[in-house]
Amino acid sequence: MSDILARLEHSRKTVANYYLLNGLLLLLCFLSFPLLIQAAPVVPFAFLIASVCMFLFFTLKKRKAYTTGFKHDLVESILKEIFTDLYFDPNRGLHNSVIKNTGMMQMGNRYSSDDYIKGKYKDIAFEQADVCIQQVTTDSEGRSHTTTYFRGRWMIFDFNKNFASDLQVRESGFTYAKKKGGWFTPKEEKMKKLELEDAEFNKGFNVYASNDHEAYYILTPHIMQSMKTLRERTKGKLILCFVASRLHVGVNSNDNAFEPPIFRAIDENIVNSIKQEISVITRFVDELKLDRNIYKQG
């Protein structure tokens, strides 16, 4: 591990130096602009062109190599320590149909996903990826407006109970879930809002179910307690969708996981922060006791 950290730290320093050099050239451009624009106008433009060319042809290339090395050499090796049957592809993501087919999220018109991880934890199969869902609109004056519906982690777990109907549990304040109980919801998609016996849970989460009994079957007092704990321990608003005997979890944290630092040293602290990011996955299995697979047979 220390070899990997040393190698990545060397790459990081190289990339950081390129960024600094880029910054320096831009600074020279701005400083020389008022001084030399009359006497030698070519000089500030030369600095600008040099900075842009350097960024495009060297900095980006070095950064890409560094990012690839960081994810494959460091992140993947840590993932392998925790998960079995691991498949990790930083350039691949979850297909948008996976989220769309749950029928639980507003999908906007721009979708991107990367850092795909598939594996098993405590023998529970899961998939996860970073996901960004946005709605881009143009107003009458031609100005573009981007509304981010979701940016964060989307995880899918095998659930330890079989169920046929859909259930949506979204944290209060999770804005862009597909509303299932409104007046304008199509009849075939309509779900009933449920109030469960835990008043604190009802305050923190909105529950929509197509079948009351199955909602109670899934949301046991233990699961409700775990969800409250997960809400406190997880950065970002949560949505949990129970669809086709699988649990989809969206963590709208507005950040990108497993990104390499540029101006922060690669050391044990980085390893710990990667482990923290991975713990978002394991936490759901542990808290919800998904490995307690005693209800499914065969």
Binding site: E195, L196, E197, H213, Y216, T220, I294, Y295, Q297
Partner: peptide
Amino acid sequence: LSILDVEEHLQASRRLYNG
């Protein structure tokens, strides 16, 4: 295993009914 699952369903029915 069956009895555990059945008991989970019974619990769900009981909570729903009592609610």
